[in-house]
Design a protein around this nucleic acid. Structure first.
Length: 132
RNA sequence: GGAGUCGGCCGGACAGUCGCGUCGCGCGCAAGCGCAUCGAGGAAAGUCCGGGCUCCAUAGGGCAAGGUGCCAGGUAACGCCUGGGCAGCGCGAGCUGACGGCCAGUGCAACAGAGAGCAGACCGCCGAACGGCACCCUCGGGUGCGCGUGGUAAGGGUGAAAGGGUGCGGUAAGAGCGCACCGCGUGCGGGGCUAACGCCGCAUGGCACGGUAAACCCCACCUGGAGCAAGACCGAAUAGGGGAACGAUAACGCGGCCCGCGUUGUUCCCGGGUAGGUUGCUGGAGCCUGGCGGUGACGCCAGGCCGAGAGGAAUGACUGUCGCGCCGCAAGGCGUACAGAACCCGGCUUACAGGCCGACUCCGCCU
RNA sequence: UGGGAGAUCGUCUAACGGUAGGACAACGGACUCUGACUCCGUUUAUCUAGGUUCGAAUCCUAGUCUCCCAG
């Protein structure tokens, strides 16, 4: 059984990576989250989180959201295209129970996959890589 | 049985699957893999105080600025804690209190009120003293009026606050004017942890010394500044700096020209330092148990233990069983607080479902 | 994470410890055939809870919220 682990390489860890995502990337929106994505050349997806204090003032709530997103990403990781992701939470995500948030994330991963398929068909798409 | 006060403690438990971080061991050139270990709190929070630690500054002392403020003790230190005093609240157990000094100085008190600071007389009360008017008379004076100069602060009234209280005497009316008691001030002695205090005793003073210092201020004591994004080490790419050697006597600029000076070349060396990395980073004023000293905070001694260390930031997700609370006849359903470490400690403050233990107080009933 | 400021009508702002004032806005009225302008009037506030004081927007303490700085 292939372990759906979440090693450190699957995380965004540089300020530069986040800045690049802010500069040139595609975006997707949900009710509680918005995602920015950008193709990388590592062969696997990487996750970054941005949960601001606007979402909730309490650190407990913010940590809970982060952990839920990580858990969902961990499970979906092997089926995702090789992109850098930044998941940002909205204020509405604060009060919702865990299963609902997980369901919405599932939906987002699904969308991401289909968008990525389109992008591979058109290499000149602006959401594509400009690494080189 | 009911109501309440104080102190201390817990704040879900167990099992399974997947996942994450740290430490250790083994394998591997390495990337990594495998096995094991540990992995949020009583407030981790607010950042309101106090320390450790690090860097910078610094002879000593004073000033300024800020803080603290009954007394004694505890402590590394504190604005914290303990004990005591005083004041207020409560039937009580107890609780609360920035609680030094307005006889060093300066200021403030709107409105009301006669008067608000070494006070004052509006309504009153009085008619003793001086004057006035009226009457009587034995011509010395007497009586009356309350008109003027006055006396007074009992009573009324204003105000947050009006210069001891009650009673008796006293008086024209009154007043510590005198006296008794109470209160207050001062001094001495005793008590009290050499204290705060004013508990006791004695002597003495007729008696304010009004309020406000979380008003300026005075007195006593304390404080150098920044903060782990402190600080230390390693250190690319690119750009730039310093030095040496070589080469050229070349080109350009300064200069009328030569010498000279500056820039341009190659090689080598050097330090500063950005991204980034490593470290600081968790064994400590530590925890548990027992003994001893102390009213207590706390201290001393002995034995045992190691209990998070991330870095775009781990401690999560799902499932089952059992607790606990609420709803329901039942099956069952719903809920299970406040809240998440970021250098580390000591406090304070604030948030918190529910529950446990101990000590004590008041009321009712029974024996 | 650390450091530092502030909070007054719906909005922008004043106020030695002594009745919280002004402008804009809102509402009502007057003027007008109607509207605008103008004039008159009315309503509305000291972030919260304690304390000091006779008296607190002001002084003190605690809390809540907002903003700024340090990468």
């Amino acid at each position: 059984m292939p372990a759906a682990g979440l090693p450190r390489e699957a995380r965004l860890r540089r300020a530069g990576d986040f800045a690049a995502l802010r500069q040139a990337s595609g975006r997707l929106g949900g009710r509680c989250f918005s995602v920015r994505y950008r193709v990388n050349d590592l062969g696997h997806p990487r996750l970054g989180l941005a949960i601001s204090k606007r979402v909730s003032k309490r650190a407990v709530d913010r940590n809970r959201i982060k952990r839920l997103v990580r858990e969902s990403f961990r499970r979906a990781r092997l089926e995702l295209p090789p992109v850098d992701l930044m998941v940002m939470a909205r204020e509405q995500a604060c009060g919702l129970p865990g299963p609902e948030l997980l369901a919405e994330l599932q939906l987002l991963w699904k969308k991401l996959r289909s968008v990525k398929v389109e992008a591979t068909l058109k290499p000149d798409d602006p959401t594509g890589t400009i690494v080189r």
